[in-house]
Design a protein around this nucleic acid. Sequence first.
RNA 1: GCGCCUGUAGCUCAACUGGAUAGAGCAGUGGACUACGAAUCCGAAGGUUGGGGGUUCGAAUCCUCCCAGGCGCGCCA
Length: 560
Amino acid sequence: MIITKLNKRLASYIKTLPAKIDRRRVIENITLGEPNNPKFGDLSTNAALVLSKPLRKSPLDIAEDIKKEIEGWEETEKVNIAKPGFINFNLKDNFILSSLKEVIKDKEDYGKNNSGNSLSINLEYVSSNPTGSLHIGHGRWGVMGDVLANLYMANGYDVKREYYVNDYGTQVKKFVECVRCIYLKNFGKDVDYPEDGYPKKTVKKVTDKIFTDNGNAFLVSLDGNTDVNLAELEKASIDIMIEDIKNTLSQMGVEFDIWFRESALYQNDNCRRILDKLKKDGLIYKKNGAVWFKSKEYGDDKDRVIIRTDGLPTYFASDIMYIINKAERGFGTLAYILGADHHGYVKRLKATAKALNLNKISLVIIIGQLVRIVKGGKSLKMSRRKGKVYTLSDLIEEVGKDAVRYFFSVNSFDTPMDFDIDLAKQKSNQNPVYYVQYAHARIESIIKNIRENTDFDIDSFTLDNIDIDNLRFETETERNIAKLIIYFPDEIYDGCVNNSPYFINQHVYNLASEFHYFYNHYRVIDESGVNRGRLALILLVKRILLNSFKIIGISAPKKM
RNA sequence: GCGCCUGUAGCUCAACUGGAUAGAGCAGUGGACUACGAAUCCGAAGGUUGGGGGUUCGAAUCCUCCCAGGCGCGCCA
């Protein structure tokens, strides 16, 4: 984490300055990183500009002092001051080279750090109702959640991936009612299909499966009438839907640690127990025959009903019990990925945590902007009720797991995505995923070529045998590649801190790009044989590609 | 009506959270395969960052007012 390290060192230098300035604020505003124009050097900082006002000195004067400080660092050289007050500097070649040793030492663990300190995180995402198949939008949260969890792990957190299954309540009952109709119809009994029922296509799929698996096993006689055992039918229907969802996620390589069922919250006397506790703590009250939660007192827009007049719990009641459940399981952080259509829950969740006095638990709520499906220039609704035009499963089958994963992980959570189905099919072969994978395939191809067509003993020339101390940069390109390699740990750290998995995509893309340039301009094998320095470099690149691919969750083909 | 979010090249998105000349990929255009894979590389072109005003050394980024779009505001889940 070289850049992070230098940032911290600069911050501690700032702390030696006169105390009358607001050092914390200054440090917050100072950046040290790569300038967007490479002509300014490897790294750059705006420290002097930020300090100018509080110190009431000209930035150029301040820059002189900071320049001296940076010149004293062992990693840096060629420190100079530019126009308004930027301080630009380079990393020493020797430092870059020796940093590469970390790759050799850590191998598949290179890039990871332990900043998470084994803190336990519960990350909940997707959590789509088991009343329909997943659509494109869920794909985004599935991939983003999975990659984010990978990132958390790479930063030393103990992550559990959790899917909350809403298998309790009226929607499920409604769904099963639809299944019942079609099921009975199979046995010649006509029952009116609910008017606002679920799409028959989905329901029929479920019913067919039940029919082939169980035949007439759910038929019972009620008061002389043929009907179904509703409880059994519900269980079977939900299981089938969950299985369907699991399969789709699995097609994308998204696997959860915990499938938490809402119905579990209502087992035994759990509900009673929690209501008693809320009552004891004075967090609920009765009004108009319903039970209300005092969420407004804790930051929500208003109080919320948790037990309806008819005695049934609301969705929010489950939420409260669920958050208590998670807390009781001992997590240090509860993280959620919610679609922007659920941003209304943020206040409610935070208010709940506050009311329950869960101070030791930090709540991380990530709001992801929605995926809009566009077809022929018009946007389509992904509504469950009207049936889906294009399911996630369709997409994965059409373009493949790697392309889907790259596509969904390449953007920030804040980006509302327009997803053009026709374009996606058309462009599946132009997905940037092939660009980064091709870099890997090319490296493998070089290795194969060396093994088959030269005397060079490639199989003994592994990372462990690379003599870094005898390497030097023959070209600027090689140096650029090396920099990208040693910045990789910074990306893992920053990506985690900012909840931005796409940092990894960007970085691996840049590395692939630099490599492709290198490949087209310089040769690893030439008439004089194998260039050991270049071979060493591409082996290092391969390691970073593999480590990045692992986090993004895509494969590393040797041939394409 | 109230609240949250978004608006950057023809299209899909970046811009290290206030930094230097706003960058990539598609599409389009001109080049590069008789040496490691052309799913690649090298050019040229493409912009008043939705619009106006403000804050300061410095604004795509912050504040404000318009314009356009998305999403939320149930004793539904």
